[in-house]
């Protein structure tokens, strides 16, 4: 029997070569309100952060790629499936962790995860076995036998993550996955997600905790007022606009600083032997300065801003519409 070419193939250690999500000229409207406006982007395999303010259109994008929203125009392809026409089959291969509390309070954690497995097409015995496995994976012990209604917020998050993972999806959509988790739990879940990415899973992370995105994602898509502001690798996104280098030195710091000032290279003294210097495109000149001053260069790297800085500066430039669909 010939296999479906769109079925995710390959071992878990081989990442998918094709983009996981491709949106083309995608528009979503709620009545007169345009939540997503002619958006086009593609998400490469791996971890991708979906960033934006409240009401920027992130949730609308997630719902649209899950085939839950009918676009006014354009199309979405996810894992090779047409999100509108093949939504049912697509959803067997993706996992979705909603931001809102979504649970079955009268069911136990185990039953909830088994239900998620069965709804994604896993047979009974396999569903039960995998449910136990992913519950161990997300750090849920004997609590799994208690009704979900009595769980803490953090435990509910773990159950939601287990429900998203149980059917072995090729792509995970995670909406604020670390909400309500204590620092230890957060680190555990992020490590788990990192592991999954290393094993070949792709994920799209929508989060307001930018340090989570920074620590996990290789790629970011920045959305504001239903439009894409940026879509690029995180390293490019956080790099200073091609103008500064961070250098760490050991030796006569005052002399080195004076020489940099004299050559109009110094941008900022960062303290503890670190300086931010203007990148004139010739790092050799910096080594020349260091040699002439008798200091030793310990490290030299392109200056990077934090994701928060970049996010605030980028979104700040584009006035957005507040209060729309998230």
């Amino acid at each position: 029997m010939l296999s479906d070419p769109r079925e995710p193939t390959g071992s878990p250690t081989e990442p998918l070569a094709e983009p996981t999500v491709v949106l083309e000229d995608f528009t979503v409207r709620y009545g007169r309100f345009t939540a997503v406006d002619r958006v086009s982007f593609s998400v490469p395999p791996g971890a991708c952060g979906l960033l934006g303010k409240n009401g920027a259109g992130k949730s609308s994008v997630l719902k649209a790629v899950l085939g839950l929203l009918k676009p006014s125009s354009g199309r979405a392809r996810v894992l090779g499936f047409d999100a509108q026409r093949e939504g049912l089959r697509l959803r067997d291969h993706v996992g979705y962790m909603p931001e809102r509390e979504a649970s079955f309070p009268t069911l136990s954690g185990l039953e909830s995860v088994i239900l998620a497995a069965r709804l994604s097409g896993l047979p009974g015995r396999e569903g039960r076995q995998r449910a136990h496995e992913v519950l161990f994976l997300v750090g849920c012990g004997e609590e799994r036998y208690r009704p979900v209604g009595g769980y803490s917020t953090g435990m509910k998050q773990r159950i939601k993550l287990a429900m998203a993972l149980v059917h072995d999806p090729a792509l995970l959509f995670l909406d604020e996955p670390t909400n309500g988790l204590d620092p230890g739990g957060r680190a555990e879940i992020l490590a788990l997600l990192r592991d999954l990415v290393d094993k070949g899973k792709s994920l799209i992370l929508s989060s307001h905790i930018l340090s989570d995105v920074e620590g996990l994602c290789e790629h970011v898509v920045l959305i504001d007022a239903g439009r894409i502001l940026a879509q690029e690798p995180l390293s490019t996104f956080t790099a200073t606009a091609g103008s500064a280098l961070r250098v760490g030195v050991h030796g006569d710091l005052l002399r080195f600083q004076a020489r940099l000032t004299e050559l109009d290279l110094l941008e900022k003294d960062l303290g503890k032997g670190q300086f931010l210097v203007r990148d004139d495109g010739e790092p050799g000149s910096l080594f020349g300065v260091a040699m002439s001053c008798g200091v030793q260069i310990r490290f030299l790297e392109k200056d990077r801003r934090s994701l928060t800085d970049v996010f605030l500066s980028t979104v700040g430039k584009h006035p957005s519409t507040e209060g729309g669909q998230g």
């Binding site: 071992s11 878990p12 049912l88 067997d92 239900l115 069965r118 709804l119 994604s120 097409g121 896993l122 047979p123 009974g124 396999e126 995998r130 496995e133 992913v134 161990f136 994976l137 750090g139 993972l165 059917h167 072995d168 555990e188 490590a191 788990l192 592991d195 999954l196 290393d198 094993k199």
Partner: peptide
């Protein structure tokens, strides 16, 4: 915490029919 440590497996089996999901 490694994925393999907890036995997370790739699922290679088939999917059940929609009717079976409805009945469940």
């Amino acid at each position: 915490m490694g994925v393999q440590d907890f036995g997370f497996r790739v699922y290679e089996g088939g999917r059940t029919s929609v009717l079976s999901r409805i009945l469940h």
